[in-house]
Design a protein around this nucleic acid. Sequence first.
DNA 1: CAGTGGTCTAGACCACATC
DNA 2: ATGTGGTCTAGACCACTGG
Lengths: 243, 243
Amino acid sequence: MAHPSPSFQPLYLQIKMLVEKGLEEGDWQPGEPIPSEAELAARYEVSQGTVRKAIDVLAAAKLVVRRQGKGTFVATHTEEKTAPFRFLHIRADDGRDETLVSHLLDVRRGKAGVEAARLLALKAGDAVIVLTRVLAFGEEPVIFEDLTLPGFLFRGLTRARTEAHSGSIYGFFETEFGVRMVKAKERLRAVAADAESARALGVPAGHPLLAIERVAYTYGERPVELRRGLVATRRHHYYNELG
Amino acid sequence: MAHPSPSFQPLYLQIKMLVEKGLEEGDWQPGEPIPSEAELAARYEVSQGTVRKAIDVLAAAKLVVRRQGKGTFVATHTEEKTAPFRFLHIRADDGRDETLVSHLLDVRRGKAGVEAARLLALKAGDAVIVLTRVLAFGEEPVIFEDLTLPGFLFRGLTRARTEAHSGSIYGFFETEFGVRMVKAKERLRAVAADAESARALGVPAGHPLLAIERVAYTYGERPVELRRGLVATRRHHYYNELG
DNA sequence: CAGTGGTCTAGACCACATC
DNA sequence: ATGTGGTCTAGACCACTGG
């Protein structure tokens, strides 16, 4: 049955928002299936084609994943098979995929400075947690980075719990804190290594490094992570495709 | 009328390939409309819905642009209104959009080295044209780059003709040589400025620069440009969104 | 086998642009 | 008024998955 049109937006976008709200509110967990198209069509009293268009949009934004014959699943960062490091754009020059190892250097609590507060939509002085780590590809340290997280979303995050978790850190955030990264914006610059980062990455002080500033977002464009990384681009590079 | 299914691929992908071939062969020029969905449906004897799905794919790949009420148009790099610099990811830190000025330093013909030949799918020694230029944002020189082009595609490219053209260089390639850039892959690194680039960009020798290597492609994944740029990230950065 | 997403059709109507 | 793309429906059938 049709809803003739008591609205401005097309029906399928309204349905999309309803399903998105369900995702946001945790009606279905990451990795689990959402209701079938037929069921959603019945529930919202629209045709299956309209539900399909709605889910097309969500799938394009990678909030859900379709699997023919099985169903539509809530996207997750924890699945080995598909893409455990969807947001990692650093690649080896020779194309090998080396094992990625994280060395956690520090976890501390603090207060947000004005800049971090602005980028994370907090107030200056709000509680934050800052992780510092080095990522090594194979044996070689390649990335030295800080992650700044809003304290109220990551209560109970400790060094031990973080180290206990294997796999991508976004998988950890997802399973342990229910925070799902959905989108990110990055700004890249070239900078000279200072003493600390030079030591961490095994390059001489003053060596050129690729600086990446990332703000990552959950549903509804809400920023939930600020990351500043320094990358030694000796045998690795940042890869990007432009369409 | 339906074609029951004498094939492996879905019908709409077959239609998509037919339309894409038309684009590739220049049946319709950049900026001009392709035939209406109804006409394509009649021509290929499929339903309009199937044509729509085919065009959806082409629109997602930005080969065409839909405009409601007007038609579907061949994408172009020459239109001021939409996005004259679709592939330029360098932005000012403060978000201003300064006028972009190109200073062409050199145009010369030469032979492809092994590396350039590999990336451009040529044979080493094949004729290439190399442009060298500086891009300035406002008054400030920001990018110093080389463009290496296959000679056989850009016959008659001269310094004078290049300078005569205003707007994006991809617009120039499109209108003057019929070469349309459709996609590109980039690799970014941090490097130290050598004497030449330091002079061109107004930074001290050894200053960290963002090095961007781009291979740009036309239809069918055919590489047609190799670009190596050095970016002074004093008050500018490389912007990227991750989905 | 039944259930899921994927394709395809035919037709109605809406929103927008142009004449 | 006409032509374009955009939405929506109802129903048929295909392709794939799993019990």
